[in-house]
Design a protein around this nucleic acid. Structure first.
Length: 806
DNA sequence: AATGCGATACTTTTT
DNA sequence: GTATCGCATT
């Protein structure tokens, strides 16, 4: 079995292996980076610290390999987790080396799986035009299964069943491979089986299925396996600490240990923050062992932050026990201290940080270079409203992405039905949207008919009689006629047609709040247009002849052919997709931007998780309180706490010049005020790198304003960043602890100097916050939040509680 | 078929 | 506090 004649399609690398670095690729690399870039073609583990030039190393490595003739573009596979990362890699690579990007396997795990399955759809047991379910689609598909099985949705919550199924798939387990240990599991397995049947019937796959199908095909087919193992001489995996069990197993199919390929795993165990979704940091150690890695390269030189910031990160993460071991260093000097601020309330915290941010902005820091990080999304509300009231532009990461918007999903569902009418998920989404007289009853009848015959809803429409039946038939006719009508049209025209014919555009035109949605539909057309251009589905594009492949060669999606606008996919090889099918795939695999008002100079708000991989001049880490960060759900077990610490490590290392840590005495959470203790992480940071803007462990008093003012002036050391600034403080915002009226009464209660809402000290539990005082005399009891020691009820006649802060 | 009400939960998230 | 969801009413 031979490789396809690659050289016809790609310029052969011209430089001999021994060529000197003519284009200066290796210039300005530090010794470790240099070692990583020029490492021999064998397994290699790179421990890449935050800000150590990891992406540069990866891309330079690929460029170097090609420039020195060690590999052709077709021989490289580079895997990332996010589309953003793979795009970044491609952009940087093409900037270094003029290379035909099309033949390279650079992409996300799921993107590459998709590519693989498109080429081998038949062997993988999939229909040629299979479509991909996003997580919302997956949950609703599971919900349909549970309903069809007449199971209790309270007991089998679709979302949780989804986790079960995804978890099983990530363990490479099919329904038959799972031990039916109890009744519950037995039913879950039955749901899994029914869901799988349903997906197969509808010709759809979920994200986990993309991985598992590819893995199974590789595992079960020697010819395919050998072909790809021979083809890819060099594999590079980014963010290796985030890989799950299946992804690692998948990788081993493409490059098994001992096969002699160059496999480079790049990761940072200290930045592993996705254990909750199946990531196994342990894969790094397993890789080192299983691939007999001779030398682990550590990238510890940091090019991002000053040493006060780095020292804080290092000191904090040194408390973790399970580490591969790595310490970041910098030549940048100490820089400014890490500033710590204690606020009376979440409101005051927000108020303070926007004033600080404004001061930074006045001193010339771009707003987009200021990030506000928080542990959980709920925390963004207060900050957002403070920013809004102050009229400061801001941008919140997270939330709905473009392709997840309802109107966009509706449009995509119509488009999917054009491709594959048996896609029941899409069918159900739009069969009665806009409404066309097909109610719940009609759908129920249709679903029964489909179930009995084992066919799709679309195929079962004829089985429903009466008015409901004719309405259903009108719908399928609408789909059929549009499919005929749009033959040979460009993607843009197809979308324009379906938006009108379906009545979607009409619906939103008549809806008084439909303007935004209409605009998004227009945006969808733009996205399609951009996609067509980018992918080269242009008018002049030519489908490369597939039959030119060497006889008996495995068609592996290489060469990737470019299809003209109205190209019909080849039924035999399947490696050429219609622009519509390709666009639908693109839409499922890449949910699009989730940031509002991109491009504007706005303060950046995001969770710590979504800040990973980003960097900013100034970073605020907010809500550093026990129970919040570290989060109470994670702090109980050692592994959970270590992950929280890594999360904090990630947060700290986002900052280039200025880092602020802040916390609040009180916070509104789940509709009630909580009294919090400062995060234990403060005890794990080097005292010398910190500057407390508020005196530690001291109550807010009248002398405080002055104290803070001078702290600000003293702290403005870096002239390049911030000169001597004067902050205009709204006293009311912080001078008074913001205790809600309802709490006021309680606060008046007093027992030997103890006050509700104030700090107390216990010899065993340490510092805490007094929440409630009840009873009197010998019965007097107090509820105290001791943070890491939890919430305690104490009998005052026994417990020694002393007030702190007086 | 659309609106409304009460019950419920609520860490982190990419593909 | 608020967003989402299922169910019931109009």
């Amino acid at each position: 079995m031979n490789l396809p004649p690659q050289d016809d399609f790609f310029a052969a690398p011209d430089a001999p292996v021994a060529a000197v670095d003519a284009t200066g690729l290796l210039k300005n690399l530090n010794p470790e980076q240099y070692a990583a870039v020029t490492a021999p073609a064998e397994p290699c583990l790179i421990l890449a610290g935050a800000g150590s030039g990891k992406t540069r190393v990866l891309t330079t490595r690929i460029a170097w390999l090609m420039q020195t003739g060690q590999v052709t573009p077709a021989g490289v596979m580079a895997v990332t987790f996010t589309n953003k990362a793979s795009k970044e890699m491609l952009t940087r690579l093409t900037a270094m080396l003029p290379v035909n990007v099309r033949g390279m396997w650079i992409g996300t795990f799921h993107g590459l799986c998709n590519r693989f399955l498109r080429a081998h759809w038949k062997l993988a047991g999939l229909p040629q035009g299979f479509q991909i379910l996003d997580s919302a689609d997956t949950v609703s598909a599971i919900k349909r299964v549970i309903r069809a099985m007449k199971l209790d949705e309270e007991r089998f919550v679709p979302k949780q069943v989804g986790w079960f199924i995804a978890g099983a798939k990530e363990d490479a387990k099919r329904p038959g491979d799972i031990e039916p240990i109890d009744e519950q599991t037995k039913t879950l397995i039955a749901i899994y089986q029914a869901y799988e049947d349903q997906c197969q019937r509808e010709g759809v796959v979920d994200f986990a299925e993309l991985m598992l199908r590819s893995y199974e095909l590789m595992k079960g087919n020697l010819a395919i396996r050998e072909h790809y193992q021979r083809r890819f001489q060099h594999l590079l995996v980014d963010e290796f600490q985030d890989t799950n069990k299946l992804q690692y197993a998948w990788l081993k199919m493409f490059a098994p240990p001992g096969r002699g390929q160059g496999v480079i795993a790049v990761g940072d165990d200290d930045q592993s923050i996705y254990a909750f979704r199946g990531a196994r940091v342990g894969n790094m150690a397993d890789f080192e062992r299983e691939y007999r890695v001779k030398k682990v390269i550590k990238l510890e030189q940091n090019y991002r932050s000053f040493s006060n910031i780095l020292d804080s990160a290092n000191e904090l993460i040194s408390r973790n026990s399970k580490r591969l071991g790595k310490t970041l260093r910098t030549d940048a000097g100490p820089g400014e201290p890490v500033r710590v601020y204690e606020a009376a309330s979440d409101f005051a915290e927000a108020q303070w940080l926007i004033e600080e941010a404004q001061a930074l902005h006045r001193q010339g820091v771009d707003r987009k270079e200021i990030a506000v990080l928080y542990r959980s999304n709920a925390q963004s509300r207060v900050i957002e409203s403070a920013l809004f009231n102050a009229g400061i532009p801001y941008r919140v990461y997270g939330g709905l992405r473009f392709f997840e918007r309802a109107e966009v999903k509706h449009a995509l569902s119509y488009l999917r039905l054009l491709e594959n009418a048996n896609d029941d998920t899409s069918f159900l989404r739009v069969v009665n949207f806009p409404t066309r007289g097909i109610g719940a009853r009609a759908i129920e009848l249709l679903q029964d008919a489909a179930r009995v015959s084992g066919r799709s809803l679309y195929q079962s429409v004829g089985a429903v009689t009466g008015k409901a039946g004719s309405n259903l038939q009108a719908f399928t006719q609408l789909i059929d006629s549009t499919r005929n009508l749009t033959q040979g049209l460009t993607l843009r025209e197809i979308i324009e047609q379906i938006l009108e014919i379906s009545g979607l555009s009409e619906f939103y035109r008549n809806d008084k709040d439909g303007a935004d949605r209409l605009e998004n539909l227009g945006e969808l057309i733009n996205a399609a247009e951009a996609f067509v251009t980018q992918e080269g589905f242009g008018k002049d594009a030519v489908a490369l002849p597939v039959d030119e492949l060497a006889p008996g060669a495995i068609s592996d999606g290489f060469p990737v052919a470019v299809a003209p606008a109205n190209f019909t996919p080849d039924a035999e090889t399947g490696e050429i997709m219609s622009p519509l099918a390709a666009f639908l795939t693109h839409a499922s695999l890449e949910a699009g931007d989730n940031q509002a008002q991109a491009g504007q100079d706005a303060v950046q708000l995001m969770t710590v998780h979504s800040s990973k991989g980003l960097e900013f001049d100034a970073v605020f880490i907010t809500g550093l309180e026990e129970g919040l960060f570290p989060h109470e759900n994670s702090a109980s077990d050692a592994d959970g706490l270590e992950e929280e610490r890594r999360l904090m490590y990630v947060a700290i290392t986002r900052a280039r010049q200025r880092l602020y840590l802040c916390f609040s005495q009180t916070r509104m959470l789940h509709g009630q005020t909580r009294y919090n203790v400062k995060s234990r992480f403060f005890d794990e940071l080097p005292e010398s790198a910190l500057k407390w803007l508020t005196p530690p462990r001291q109550a807010f008093g009248s002398g405080f304003a002055k104290e803070y003012q001078s702290a600000w002036e003293r702290g403005s050391g870096l002239k390049s960043m911030v000169g001597a600034g004067r902050v205009n403080h709204d006293k009311a915002a912080w001078a008074e602890p913001a205790v809600p009226a309802a709490m006021k009464k309680k606060e008046d209660a007093e027992h030997g100097g103890l006050k509700v809402g104030k700090g107390v000290f216990h010899t065993k539990f340490g510092e805490g916050v007094l929440l409630t005082l009840e009873g009197s005399g010998a019965d007097a009891r107090a509820q105290v939040n001791f943070g890491r020691h939890g919430m305690k009820w104490l009998a005052l006649s026994v417990a020694k509680l002393t007030p702190i802060d007086a």
